[in-house]
């Protein structure tokens, strides 16, 4: 007699850039797919992102960054999630991330990196497949 569990997604923007076009387009598409999307606003520190993920008990953390600071900020976010026993949360990323960085980021536990031009449907499917 349990209500079907809603998938909760945190869309977070670490880094100092203000490019939220992608993050917002994705947030809207995820909402339209029936997810609950929590958006943090711009320029969030790793600490703010990890703590929000915890308090909101999200299934997915989507990180959008275009500033180029991902190699510094993502490891910190992953570490802070781990410290909060949130290592099982699905972390995905998007924005401007050079392909050279994909492998080290995936080693950190980031499950997928969606580059520019990714159809939003692909992100929805990926989340559905990896959260059940």
């Amino acid at each position: 007699m349990t209500e079907t569990r809603k998938i909760r997604v945190l869309i977070a923007k670490p880094g100092l850039d203000g490019h939220d076009r992608g993050a917002k387009v994705v947030a809207r598409a995820l909402r339209d797919a029936g997810f609950e999307v929590i958006y943090t606003g711009l320029r969030q520190t790793p600490e703010q992102i990890a703590e929000t993920a915890l308090q909101e008990d999200v299934d997915v953390v989507g990180l959008s960054i275009l500033s180029g600071a991902h190699m510094r900020l993502f490891p910190e976010i992953m570490q802070l999630l781990k410290e909060r026993e949130m290592a099982d949360v699905l972390v995905i990323a998007g924005g401007i991330i050079p392909e050279d960085d994909f492998e080290p980021l995936k080693k950190l536990g980031i499950k997928e990196i969606f580059g520019p031009g990714t159809p939003t449907g692909e992100i929805v499917d990926f989340i559905r497949k990896h959260t059940k």
Partner: peptide
Amino acid sequence: HLPTIQGYDSDDPMSKGEIGVC
């Protein structure tokens, strides 16, 4: 770089990872 654009010095905690990048 973004810290200058946002009015932060390079040693501000907000500038982490952004120095000289953009």
